[in-house]
Design a protein around this nucleic acid. Sequence first.
DNA 1: GTCATATTGGAGCGGACGCTATATAATATC
DNA 2: GATATTATATAGCGTCCGCTCCAATATGAC
Lengths: 203, 203
Amino acid sequence: MARPREFDEGAALDAAMQRFWAAGYAATSVRELGQAMGLGQASVYNAFGDKRALFIQCLDRYLDANMRARITRLENSLPPRQAIETFLREIVERSLESRLGCLLANAALEVAPHDQDIADVVAERMEELEAFFRRCVIAGQSDGTISRAANAADTAQLLLTTVMGLRVLARGYPKQAVLEGAVRQALSVLGKPPRRRTPRAPS
Amino acid sequence: MARPREFDEGAALDAAMQRFWAAGYAATSVRELGQAMGLGQASVYNAFGDKRALFIQCLDRYLDANMRARITRLENSLPPRQAIETFLREIVERSLESRLGCLLANAALEVAPHDQDIADVVAERMEELEAFFRRCVIAGQSDGTISRAANAADTAQLLLTTVMGLRVLARGYPKQAVLEGAVRQALSVLGKPPRRRTPRAPS
DNA sequence: GTCATATTGGAGCGGACGCTATATAATATC
DNA sequence: GATATTATATAGCGTCCGCTCCAATATGAC
């Protein structure tokens, strides 16, 4: 009953996401976004609302495509301890490839303190990541691959904090030795990795 | 030989620093800065150069007055393990008081990737904080208050990462239980705190 | 006091900002 | 094919941006 869109909304959102990711919210203009998306400004506003609404859609898309997809993939394909280890190691890999860091961390610092809606999204997703770590720790303690000495909630909170810290370092102090050392030491709180197939929990 | 300044440069820098700290670099205009500093724009440019130069001066001032001063104070007044513990606990306290976070972390995410000079400052100061933690860990291992099981460099890197992560959470997910749990678990890598006055190192 | 120098307030530069109004083009329905 | 509806392109709205010019003002050196 009307003229159809000439562009792929998903691809356009991806392009906008990349700009916000690289340059931040305030430093990215709607004109730049439109250019990156291959759209005129009118189409941007027509399809996605204003700049803030577009940012929220980009943030959601980023989190679904990156964080949540990674959680699902690792949780379904690896035993819990390895899921944690792989999660952190993948972040180090990405951080050494580029200085983009993490759009969630960037948004948490730049936008969340001044925008309640975005703050809610950020908090919700951080909680989601924390919950993933907590599930993994508890499962690992059950199957004997993670020490029962450490409190699961505390460990999950440290892992969340470590991820966010790594993302800051990725943009501001991207030294391989630092990232890898931090991860190595963070993982040490899980206890020594099991050498046998079905090791006993220490206590 | 000329008309003197009518304002206190330090106080003006402090006022500008607060604005950058709270709102970020891009989202703070020179007009706002001048207003907060009690200066006309001409005086701002005359005394501090352009916006970017002013930001760098604010960042330096922030780091000297906060990070470096704290390092010096703790290192001179406390034994090494307590210096680490107090550093982290003070950050948690500050994070629960306000959502300001840390100007260094904010700058690392927002500005460093696009400005080499600022990136250099950021990296330099991160290295400084890392070195503080490393000194403390090594000293604590010498006096027996910190376990020798953990690698000192790795531990310092984890502590640096934890600090940066806490600063992200402060702005985006400021839950007391999360901050405290993360710190508790991060400190656990130092080994159990000594109960006796002069405990032995474990090995 | 005179002069040279530096600071200050205010006006304003050119340009980019977020966003919108309007007019045209393209489609599904009937 | 006429109509209703949406998408696109262009132009432009008012505002704020970083920054500068300029006249007025206030000091130290002589």
